Simulated assay, not measured.
Amino acid sequence: MEAAIAWLVQTILATLLIDKLDAWIRQVGLADDVEKLKSEVERVEMVVGGVRGRGAGNKLLARSLARLKELLYDAEDVIDELDYYRLQQQWMIPKVCLQQSE
């Protein structure tokens, strides 16, 4: 479980570091929200590192880690949606310019 969470954390943080996505996030005014998300994801990484291996014998901790994994999947989905909207906007701008020039 901890390995899956660590992988999700790294995936989310790596996606947020993509220059084009980062620039777009700032352009559309979501920088503060994304920074908060990034901080929370880094905090999760730190906590999971501290409990590594303990979830197997502790049902409450195992449930908490499972819920945390679900929340990270949700966060990853949000980041993917942001990147989708960035790409959609990037694609629409040239198309609109072409239609206006016709």
Rank of each mutant, 00 (worst) to 15 (best):
V96E: 06
D19K: 13
G55Q: 00
R54M: 09
M46W: 07
I93Q: 11
Y73G: 00
I5Q: 00
L72F: 00
N58I: 05
V47N: 07
K59I: 04
L21W: 10
L37F: 13
L71F: 07
I79V: 15
A56M: 01
R63K: 11
D22E: 13
Q27C: 02
P94R: 04
I25Q: 05
S39R: 09
W91F: 14
L21T: 07
E45D: 11
L98G: 00
L17P: 01
G50Y: 13
L65H: 08
G49Q: 07
L98P: 00
Q90D: 11
A23P: 02
E40P: 05
Y85T: 06
I79W: 10
G49S: 12
G50I: 10
K95S: 04
P94V: 06
D22Q: 14
A4E: 00
V28Q: 04
Q99K: 11
K69Q: 12
G49A: 06
S101F: 08
D74Q: 05
V9T: 03
K69Y: 09
V78P: 01
L21D: 04
A14K: 14
W24M: 00
Q90I: 03
P94Q: 03
S39D: 07
W91H: 12
E102R: 10
R86M: 12
R63Y: 12
E81T: 14
A31K: 15
D19P: 12
L61N: 09
M1W: 09
K20Q: 01
A66R: 10
L13D: 11
E81W: 15
W91N: 11
W7L: 02
L13A: 06
S64P: 00
G49W: 12
K20Y: 01
A56Q: 09
W91R: 12
R86L: 06
S64R: 05
I12D: 02
L98V: 05
K20T: 04
A6T: 12
D80M: 10
K20A: 05
I79H: 08
A62P: 01
D22I: 05
M46A: 08
A75Y: 15
K38F: 11
L71C: 03
E2R: 12
D83P: 06
K38R: 15
E70D: 08
W24L: 01
A66Y: 12
R67Y: 04
K36F: 15
Q99L: 10
A62T: 02
D74Y: 08
Q100F: 10
I25L: 13
R54D: 09
E40R: 15
V47Q: 08
K69P: 02
E35R: 13
T11C: 01
A3R: 13
M92C: 01
I25E: 07
D74R: 04
L13T: 14
D74A: 07
